[in-house]
Design a protein around this nucleic acid. Sequence first.
RNA 1: CGGAGCAUAGUUUAAUGGUAAAACAAUCGUCUUAUAAGCGAUAUUAGCGGCAGAUAACCGCAAGAUUACAGGUUCGAGUCCUGUUGCUCCGACCA
Length: 932
Amino acid sequence: MKKWADAKLYEAIQNERQNREKFILHDGPPYANADIHIGTALNKILKDFVIKSRSMFGFRAPYVPGYDCHGLPIETHVEKKLAEKGKDKKDLPVSTFRRICREHASTAMNNQTRDFKRLGILGEWETPYLTMSNEYESETARLFGKFLERGYVYKGLRPVYWCIHDQTALAEAEVEYKIHNSPSIYVKFPLATDPAEIDEKLAGKKVSLVIWTTTPWTIPANLGIAVHPDYEYAAIEHGDEVLIVASELVGFVIVKCGIGGVNEDGERQMPKILAKFAGSKLDRMKAKHPWIDRESLIMNGDHVTLGGEADGETELDVSEAREKKDTAKAGTGLVHTAPGHGHDDYVIGKKYGLEVYCPVDNAGRYMDDVEGFVGENIFAANPKIVELMRENGSLLFAENYEHRYPHCWRCKKPVVFRATPQWFIAMDNLEDKSLRAQAFREIEKVKWHPNWGEGRMANMFKGRPDWCVSRQRSWGVPIPVFYCQDCGETIAKPEIVNHVADIFAKETADAWYNRVESELLPEGFACPKCNSTDFAKETDILDVWFDSGSSCVAVLETRGDTLRFPADVYLEGGDQYRGWFNSSLMCGIAAHDQSPYKQIITHGWVVDGEGKKQSKSVGNVTAPQEIINKSGADVLRLWAAAVDYTEDVRCSDEILNRVTDAYRKFRNTLRYALGNLDGFNPETDTVALSEMLETDRWALASFDEAAKEILTAYETFDFQTVYRTIYNLCTVTLSARYFDIIKDRLYIYAPKSVARRSAQTALYEMTDKLCRLLAPILAFTADEAFENLPHQKFASVHLAEFPRISGADNSQMLNDWERIFSIRDIVLKSLEEARAAKEIGSSLEAKVVLTVDKETTMFLISYFEDLRYIFIVSQVEVHEGEAFSVKIEKADGEKCERCWNYSTRVGESENYPTVCERCVPALNEIEKLANA
RNA sequence: CGGAGCAUAGUUUAAUGGUAAAACAAUCGUCUUAUAAGCGAUAUUAGCGGCAGAUAACCGCAAGAUUACAGGUUCGAGUCCUGUUGCUCCGACCA
């Protein structure tokens, strides 16, 4: 690694490819909060495979890594650190708080960079892009201006977690679930639509819908009732009126609410069911609010469930509802919907065009339009509302109900869901220029790997609501808009945004907090409406997804000649469909009406040996740092290549041990090859292909066959096939077959003999190619081997290109050799038996006597000279006969002291009486050399 | 709960709807001029039969990874369809 840094390897590669066609992989920035984990390592390694392989295909493939620096986790981390010192965020100026966040991000980033370098990732580590840099923050702001300019931005209301004590919005991460005692009430909403429209039998009846909720205080904000379109609902008789509940819950509801008669045994009698119908029948009918003169719209929504925590207002309890649990049933199958006070409510209300009505202020008090409760605290109002409904007969039943309810992590008080003003990016305005419509068109053009990604992405955009880009936070890029203090006009203009962005470019976005309004606005700027010069700046910041999404312009277009928009590939984990892929696509469209990526590759998550997620508390984590220290970075890289990254990948000690074994195989293959190339000079010692021995030509052809597959696999990012094919090549073709066969020739023949040079020529060519084919994966090992390859002209294998494979058709030769090897397998088995019977020890003590049919005889005769080497025995006889048979006999003659082969001609030479006829000329030559 | 993906020997992976395969690990052997190496072989088991019998070995028969589970389509399913289970990701202030 040091060598690479000293040699400025990355820079050298980029220089080498200066004028080549570009291939841009745009790095998705990891979050600069903590040290890297195995998943981060996998992601970066895969990216490095892509970069290095594309570079070796001859592309100019720069790699500009990035870091995501803004956002909540850093804020919470810093807040905790402050709390430990007894300080509070609120007591610090925002700019100070931001400075601490910035320092924290820098530290984390430096640690990550150190680890990424150790992984062998080459890139512009001295100049990565940071979402908190002044250039980047400036570009982010500018892009917001672009969205404004194109008319996508609007301000609207949206419910968020809200702590009425601290008067602040909360992230889900800042919410704790605790047991809370809430009122649980069943309330009638009289049907306003003619009940005959549901069923003839209901004509003229007084019909009501029954809802259930644990938050009575949201009833004043009720604007609708949601039913599931596919569930069956029942109209049941209750005195002189009729109630509608889900069929499945009738039994439960009548018991709870005391509906229907009781028989002499005290058992509840089933009331009369007047009609049954699907929820879809109720769609868009109307009900009346229990006491306010207002209609409540009946809507169809798939979020409706039959009982349990997911109902009604408990979307507050989302994460809880994800866990299956057997709580007492609750609910009616009809969900009270207050778009200003619940997420599902908001979504469905949006769909049906309901107002986001929130008559509750920052401190949790009802506002002017809630008659009778103005200024009342909402929790205090709960029992009063229940009482009101009991009085007017709307209430069917009320009890106390214990359930898990979100609480503020800081003040430990219950939180509420409350609509607050937010900035949005619209998905559906502007007809066919709408973000959604354009996104669909672009998604089709992008190449997805694996290809179900297209469906997933399209699906995501189908259901995606408008993008809420504002956050009530401090550590991020401020939304550069102003409000006129005199007339309340909102100043959200591209030219103003750009003016602010120019300031950010010089001073970072901290300028927003360090400067007063007049220093942020252009000189002499006055409100276009009232001409006032008194402005207040927006306090919200942009969603961090907006930050990272803007990288397609903030990075791709600010690196001079190095990068370009759009990138060829984005490569991230599958979680980014909703994350970065999503936000980047919108940013790309806003900036250039085009997707910022041509191709998306996703990988799965790293899980443990059993397929479970890795977590520190379970203790099944595999830390990349430890693996590197124990086995080296190349083992980790090899692991990344060996697994199928398109799905979840397992990692455990056993798996890593297997990979380490495989790694040794590669290493030993290279070592053997290099050891036998000592003294070989490719410029003077190369033997022309036509003069090479058949065995060597076969090996080269066989190698090329594999190389072709490997190159295709690299092209399609199928690193697993690369791994498997190279591994097979090394173990079978090279190690078990070729290397074993040529040992004799390499060790025995005179150094300069054609037989030896022929083998070395093949060996040299294959080693050279093997290093190159391995280089993207075994970045260090391949480079080390390549460096030791005699007389090669590159300073590093990473500067070289992949070998070009001749298109020559060697299929006849390859087929013939496959046949030879199948015969070899049988011979080796026979040798094994002879060895077991103690007839021979070394295979060189044997003579193989083959009896084969005529056609096979002819075939083998053409390879006769090579057979003894292929079988690694001293002598071979081939006889024509009926059935195929192999006999192992003791070899004739004496053992040659030098080559251990047996020969009848040992002792012929006077100079060398203990060696065979092959060794004599070799020794002569060696002696001549020694004397010279 | 909803959306998406995955599930083949101890491990990692193969298998146009047509014989479930390879390598590694394991066990055993072998070489000692790739040596923290190389090469090769083996593969599980209740039972039945063969040898006068016993033991071991061997031979034959039969079964044998129930391709997560259960169904379905098909002459034929690891592969296609449906359901179930398990795991993973996503589901608007976690990245």
